[in-house]
Design a protein around this nucleic acid. Structure first.
Length: 423
RNA sequence: GGUGAGGUGGCUGAGUGGUCGAAAGCAGCGCUUUGCUAAAGCGCCGUACCCCAAAAGGGUACCGAGGGUUCGAAUCCCUCCCUCACCGCCA
């Protein structure tokens, strides 16, 4: 959520930055300002009424103690009370309207974010490794999976409908090995604390990390929208410290979490739906940081590097792109996407998205820290999917396929998988 | 699911309708004094929002959350959330 004071004091800056998102978001600013002015006017009048009422009520108390008649005073306060009721109603309406508007305005892109309108405008920041060369026909993960019996899409569909996958045998084991491998890497070499949070969270959490109110259609909700299945571990993990004031010395906090993720993927039917690339339930190992504002961008680079280490350790060719302003997620100020090379699809596949939300989420969650001067300030939050499992799985088996249709397991993963190949 | 007890400021903990935004203690900050790693005394010490060009200053709200009663609510009533204890049920 943006700071209303920033909007009030520098509306032109806010509008111009929002305009680079190319969704017409800047048009909401004037409306917020109008509501804000009205809200403050009502609040001021209301506070004057309350001050009068408070003062006169105390006088009544004093008069009664002295045994004096206070009927006239009581009548005056009663009248003020009646006026107050209506003012409270109007002020509440204005306040809710303002909050609602603010919740639907996305974050400002970082000043350095590349300006553009679509994914085609996302610049490649760097790439690592080389596309593997094959001297045999290249199979995609669907064909490899069928040949090696790594997953069973048909029977998963029988259980839960299209868009669900069931890993089987060596496939299930490979998935588990990847999870364990990533968690060990992040906890033992990158200094993250592993957490295993609930997957079902309250509505407030979803608002805090910006999934709601705007994207409710993409979420699996229960109990009339009181609870939701988390679409990413970012939701439970980032909300862990909501409504808290952290000591500055505790920052940065670094978490990694393995969780299943649940997404309706509404409106994306037929898009990237082949195989296991886009499913309603998938596993993911997430990275989350809560930092001081001063160091958040340095931490963002480090977090991205940590996510890259996964792909490097597995020997997978990938590239890092930076999202342009038009492609940036709702709450993000700056995002790097990691795209791994998929030989089977002859394309890059997004496996990881590393974002800096600055204080946008922290304001929604009321997550603060006490700085050196003892002032309470909002934290910055970052997250990077330490990689979506099905996509990593797909790229991994495609990149390591052999001429005979078997799959070689990267050396670093072998201790976790317990074998050097799948055949 | 049932019954009972609770939720007060960083912590402990008073406060059952009126100078209570809230006693006291602890922790913290500042000053003074004495001095071998400390003690004593005094003062300060919540958050958010609003008014004010700003500072100074003033005001409102907040005692788990939301409603209600009342001239006036931490205090009375209702609903919800949470914590603890025991019982029931169950992986």
């Amino acid at each position: 959520m943006l700071d209303i004071r920033l909007i009030r004091e520098q509306p032109d800056l806010v509008k111009s930055r929002l305009a680079t998102r190319s969704g017409g978001e800047q048009l909401k600013i004037d409306e917020v300002l109008t509501v804000d002015a009205e809200r403050r006017r009502l609040e001021t009048v209301l506070q004057q009424c309350n001050a009068d009422r408070k003062r006169l009520s105390k006088e009544i108390g004093g008069a009664r103690r002295r045994g004096e008649n206070s009927a006239e005073l009581e009548e005056r306060v009663r009248q003020i009370g009646d006026a107050t009721t209506e003012l409270v109603r109007q002020a509440t309406v204005a306040e809710e309207r303002q909050r609602d508007l603010l919740l639907n305005i996305p974050n400002l892109p970082h000043a350095d974010a590349p300006v553009g309108t679509t994914a085609a405008d996302n610049p490649v920041v760097r790439s690592w490794g080389e596309k593997p060369q094959f001297d045999h026909p290249v199979l995609d993960h669907v064909a490899l999976g069928a040949k090696l019996k790594l997953f069973d899409a048909e029977r998963a569909t029988k259980l839960s409908g299209s868009g669900f996958i069931c890993f089987t045998g060596p496939g299930a084991r490979l998935e588990r090995a990847l999870i364990q491998f990533m968690l060990d890497l992040h906890t033992q070499e990158h200094g993250y604390l592993e957490v295993s949070p609930p997957f079902l969270v309250r509505r407030d959490c979803m608002v805090g990390t910006t999934q709601l109110p705007k994207f409710e259609d993409d979420m699996y909700g229960f109990e009339d929208g009181a609870m939701f299945l988390a679409p990413t571990a970012e939701v439970p993990v980032t909300n862990l410290y909501r409504e808290e004031i952290l000591p500055a010395a505790d920052l940065p906090k670094k978490f990694t979490a393995y969780t299943p993720c649940f997404r309706r993927e509404a409106g994306s039917a037929g898009r990237e739906t082949r195989g296991i690339i886009r499913v309603h339930q998938f596993d993911k190992v997430e990275l989350v940081k809560i930092t001081a504002p001063e160091s958040s961008y340095a931490e963002h680079e480090a977090l991205t590097a940590d996510a890259e280490r996964v792909l490097q350790s597995l020997g997978l060719h990938y590239r890092v792109i930076e999202l342009c302003t038009g492609d940036l997620g709702f709450g993000s100020a700056k995002t790097y996407d990691l795209e791994v090379w998929s030989p089977g699809q002859n394309a890059y596949l997004e496996v990881s998205s590393c974002s800096n939300f600055e204080e946008y989420q922290a304001r929604r969650m009321n997550l603060r820290f006490k700085d050196a001067e003892g002032k309470n300030r909002f934290c910055h939050t970052l997250n990077g999917s330490g990689t979506a499992l099905p996509r990593l799985f797909a790229a991994l088996i495609e990149a390591n396929q052999q001429a005979d249709g078997s799959v070689r397991i990267p050396e670093k993963l072998q201790p976790y998988f317990g074998a050097a190949e799948i055949c």
